[in-house]
Structures are given as structure tokens and as C-alpha cells.
Computed example of a mutant assay.
Amino acid sequence: MELNSIKPSSGSKRPRRRVGRGIGSGLGKTAGRGHKGQKSRSGGYHKVGFEGGQMPLQRRLPKRGFKSRTLKFNAEVTLSDLERLGAAEVDMLALKQAGLVGELVKVVKVIKSGELTKAVKLTGIGATAGAKAVIESAGGSLA
């Protein structure tokens, strides 16, 4: 095979449609637009979502919910996750390398879910009041 012999597979390319080029082409006179009306005119067509003056669907339905844009930068880690991790000192980098939090995360908080028996020193990581009590009772600390 040579570079100058490469061709697209048969049937994958179709010739351009040249409208308004005479009666013999099959697309002359009205050029496939039918007769009269808004859709046949140049530059004339309704905007997206327009329903002929009727109140459009996107305005009939109630507004609902909110998606925070900062959500992807925050993460939660459970006590059972820290137990499974088994490291004495835990920081943001250790959690990212273990795959417990995403790469984009900037703020991590430990929540009280599960058990913790090992002493863990947390640096640069927050914790809820309940989680903090469990960590300190297991001999760990927060910095």
C-alpha cells in the first residue's frame, strides 16, 4: 500500500448537493424547499424552542435544583477508608495516590462512617466533630 493509493471506502463519501441548478438536476426551481411559507424563504425560520407563540416547554416547566461548580474540588473520606489505607500519616497526596479522592480535589474532610482502630495523623485534612473524636480516641491527631 502506498500513501498515494489510499482512498475512502466505497459509499462513505457522497457528492455535494448543488441545489437550484436547473430542472434536469431534480433540485431546480424551488430547490427542495417546497412552495412558499416561512421555511422556504432565506433567513426565515423560528428560533430553537419556539412553539408558534404558545408558551414554550422550557418556560412551562418549573425551575428546579442547583449544581454547585465547586463540588468537584471537595471530597469526603470515611473512617473505614482510613482504616483500609493503613498509613500512620495521611495527607492529600497520599489520598490521591491511593485513589480515595480525585485528582482535582483541593479540600478533603473525614466523616464519621465506619470504625477506626489505628492511630492516624492527618495533615491538611479536615474532619467532622464526630470523626475528630474517634480519631483522637484511637490515638491519632489532626494538624
Rank of each mutant, 00 (worst) to 15 (best):
K47W: 14
K7A: 13
K121E: 13
K109Y: 01
G34V: 04
F73H: 06
L61E: 15
L142M: 05
K118A: 12
V77T: 05
R60C: 07
G124R: 00
T128D: 13
L82Q: 05
R60L: 12
Q54Y: 13
K118Q: 14
G126W: 15
A31V: 04
K121A: 15
V134S: 01
K36G: 06
S25F: 08
R18N: 11
R64T: 08
N4Q: 06
G99E: 11
A133K: 12
L85W: 05
G86K: 03
E103S: 02
N4A: 12
L79N: 02
G26C: 07
H35D: 05
A87P: 00
G20I: 02
I111A: 05
T123R: 11
T70G: 01
A129E: 14
K29I: 00
G139L: 10
A129H: 09
K63D: 08
G126C: 03
K72Y: 11
R59D: 15
K118H: 07
K121Y: 13
K29A: 03
L82P: 06
M92T: 08
P62Y: 15
S137D: 07
S9V: 09
I111H: 14
A88V: 05
G11S: 09
G44C: 14
G49K: 00
A31E: 10
G49M: 12
S113C: 07
Q38R: 06
S80Y: 03
G114M: 06
S10R: 07
R16H: 06
T123K: 11
F73A: 02
G49L: 12
K7G: 09
L100H: 10
G52R: 03
V48A: 13
L82C: 04
V48W: 04
L95T: 09
Q97K: 13
K13C: 07
G28V: 00
V134A: 04
R14A: 14
G139P: 03
Q54W: 12
G49I: 08
K36T: 08
E136I: 12
R14S: 12
V120L: 03
A131F: 14
S137E: 06
A94V: 11
K13Q: 12
E76W: 02
T70Q: 07
R41E: 07
V107K: 10
G140R: 07
L122G: 08
S5F: 13
G52F: 06
L61C: 03
G99Q: 02
V48E: 15
L57R: 09
G99R: 10
G22H: 07
G24M: 02
D91K: 02
L85R: 04
L100C: 08
V108K: 10
P8K: 04
A87H: 09
S40I: 04
E51S: 10
R17K: 11
H46L: 10
R16I: 11
T78P: 05
K39T: 08
T117F: 00
V90K: 00
E2W: 12
I135P: 09
R18E: 01
G102H: 03
